[in-house]
Amino acid sequence: MPVTVVNNTKVWQRYDTATRMKIWLGWIIGTAITLLCWQLISNNTRWEFVADASQQLSAFLQRMFPPDWAYAEQLWKPLWDTITIATLGTLLAMSIALPLSFVAARNTTPHPILRYVALLIIVISRSVNSLIWALILVAITGPGVLAGILAIALRSIGFIGKLAYESIEETSYEPIEAITATGANRLQVLDYAYLPQVLPSFAGISIFRWDINIREATVLGLVGAGGIGLNLNASVDLLRWDRVGMIFILIFALVLISETLSARVRKAII
């Protein structure tokens, strides 16, 4: 925070001139890039459709409410499927991610080459959205809940695996040394020194991911991978907005409940 003397008066400025220039330059470049991007998007937008957006929205809302309450009866099974996809997918991902994270962590990996393989698996799994995994899996297993479970699992392995191996790398070394010194073998050291330190955070991470997965599972049906998204897709195609409204209400309730539940359980664990 330089203070300069101009005309015998002390002038205070937050930054000196060079820093201020850099900050300005940063803002100008940032704004230019954003505007350029906006230009591209604007060119690809048909503004005559946008002009009546408010009418579209009000028409949409009018047709959505009142929702088709009777339709709810057909939605219990898809809702159950959605929960099943999220839960079984998360469990499957957990059972793979736990051993994988021990291979990926610097301090527990059996071999550096295996470590890089594990890290690669984690990165690929994380970079691909579960909806894209679902596209791939629907092609292999055919449409249905199974594809959804596998898609959720494939996306979650990377998420859980990354956070878990980071927490393994943060374990404190002293207990590990102490258990080793008693003459315990590698598995026993894992069981007594690593697991007690890692399991609570692993459980927390998994429950957090389950909560996210509930949300993701609601849309997998759009590409045919089961759950309530199938009904959403069908209702949108038929322009049955009252049914869409009903589905939105159920999704909203489901996500709120799962979020509360997961927050409670995580608090109980930690």
Binding site: I41, N44, T45, A53, L57, F60, V244
Partner: peptide, 12 residues
């Protein structure tokens, strides 16, 4: 889905 209904298909 909602925004597509409002603005039509496209990046907006």
């Amino acid at each position: 889905i909602v925004f597509v209904v409002m603005f039509g298909f496209g990046p907006l």
